[in-house]
Design a protein around this nucleic acid. Sequence first.
DNA 1: TTTAAGCGCAACAAAATGGTTGCGCATTCA
DNA 2: TGAATGCGCAACCATTTTGTTGCGCTTAAA
Lengths: 114, 114
Amino acid sequence: MSRTALRGRAQLKGRASVFAALGDETRLSLIGRLSNGPPQSISRLAEGSMLTRQAITKHLRVLEGAGVVRSIRIGRESVFAFRPEPLRELRSYLERVSEQWDDTLARLKSFVEN
Amino acid sequence: MSRTALRGRAQLKGRASVFAALGDETRLSLIGRLSNGPPQSISRLAEGSMLTRQAITKHLRVLEGAGVVRSIRIGRESVFAFRPEPLRELRSYLERVSEQWDDTLARLKSFVEN
DNA sequence: TTTAAGCGCAACAAAATGGTTGCGCATTCA
DNA sequence: TGAATGCGCAACCATTTTGTTGCGCTTAAA
């Protein structure tokens, strides 16, 4: 396989993992909180969440694995902060797909008309 | 629960389902093809895909469930076409999150500085 | 120096996901 | 009409995901 094809596959994989990370209500609302407020500890994020602390921890690790958040240990607390880069990449990807679709639509239209 | 809260939950759910639909390499490449080329049948989409036709069918149904594609039956073929709306919604959502984060960052900064 | 808070690890269970195979029905083509 | 194409349905299997509980370790607080 060519070098660019390999890179393409890797990008595809990473992108899919970010999409997958956002494909869950619990994680989406965690993102909502972390992109809004300051970095927060696991216990803090688990408060008022129905789920146990452990469940929240797992979700946070998924988000971290996709690069959407990062964590640092401060004393006995694990503090999570939002990371905007992956979401920016997704946005630009979605933009490219939309543009592609517009072009395709135009082509199809002219094909039908002629 | 308030009316706007209910609507908010429903939106969250729908959005999560779209993200989840895109959170898979196979489905991402299907989207790539459908947003690029013309509507295509299942067999066509399954060609050169490693996976069986049935597997591709399942993926297409997931995409359809999230509203990212739609299908119509033409004779003995099931033809799938791209639908841009849900991805547009995601893009605007990601945009809002980014803006929110910019604001939050500014607030945090001024908090630290004072 | 006890006590309590915050986590991580491990084991476990249930449900969802991703994939296969076999089969039968409808539609098209020769 | 008979053969072949395109699908859908159902059963089934392996793996991953989502969540829980129990326990022990470290760090902070009284």
